[in-house]
Design a protein around this nucleic acid. Structure first.
Lengths: 143, 143
DNA sequence: ATTTTTGCAAATCATTTGCATATAT
DNA sequence: ATATATGCAAATGATTTGCAAAAAT
């Protein structure tokens, strides 16, 4: 996800393109793995952007609404964000490098159908988070 | 999950069985749906148990470690707990009544295998949360 | 006796909000 | 011009921690 793509989406959705939002977009685009809101705030301060805490949170919230960023809950219980494609999907989060790989939806359908049927439960939404080690980290770790 | 079962598990795991822990066990056992730690603290105060905030959090953490209670992340992003069987499983959370139904693991395996293969990702754990409306609430709502 | 647990109050975090000012349209 | 967005600092909420006193083994 590039800075430009983030900014373009903002504009397309009718939000104002401001300098602070550009900066946050840049910080988000520059991230590899997942990060917390506070990570981003620290990042902003460290780089002497004049971005305030509130703006960082608000912009992150906005990006989340637009589906440009997704909020994930780590096993530790803390909240993190990852940049992502607007299409619906899930993430496989590598515990080695923190990167999030996109998981295509396919494959889950039958399992969800089974659950719905067995429990007589009408599913309206679901969330799958997969944790593990990515190929690169497996190779790296074996070094 | 009964108070006794919770207390018995505590004992079995070599933790001291204290009055505050009994009380928290009772409060947990008395809950129907999911609840936050703060809910429990309020509950404790309302009933004039002498339980402090810290104890409530610590006991909840202990129960979680023992697998007697599970921490779930609601779509809102807030943390909640549900009493549950120690066996590994997931929950289907009803947005109507807040109750959590147990989801047997079966059915997810193939989907996870597919994900692991497609992404070349070694899965170590995963979390599935399903949200929707249970049969009782559907009937109730249709009343 | 000894170790674990408790309650309290204070500390720490994360996140949100009010509001006057600044900025994008 | 006007609506929207910003920064600040203060408010809020959730959770954790230090520590002396209390309770369980």
């Amino acid at each position: 996800m590039t800075t430009d793509a983030l900014v373009a989406s903002l504009e397309r959705a009718g939000h104002r393109v401001t300098t602070p939002r550009r900066v946050v977009a840049q910080l988000v685009a520059g991230r590899e793995g997942h990060f917390t809101a506070s990570d981003l705030v620290d990042d902003a301060r460290r780089r002497h952007t004049g971005i305030g805490r509130a703006t960082a949170f608000r912009t992150l919230e906005l990006f989340t609404e637009l589906g440009l960023v997704e909020r994930v809950d780590l096993p530790s219980g803390s909240h993190a964000y990852v940049a992502c494609d607007p299409a619906h999907h899930h993430h496989a989060i590598c515990t080695g490098c923190g990167r999030a790989l996109d998981v295509a939806e396919s494959g889950l359908g039958p399992a969800l159908d089974g659950i719905a049927r067995r429990l007589d439960f009408q599913i309206t939404s679901h969330r799958l988070e997969v944790f593990g080690v990515c190929a690169a980290c497996r190779r790296g770790a074996a070094r």
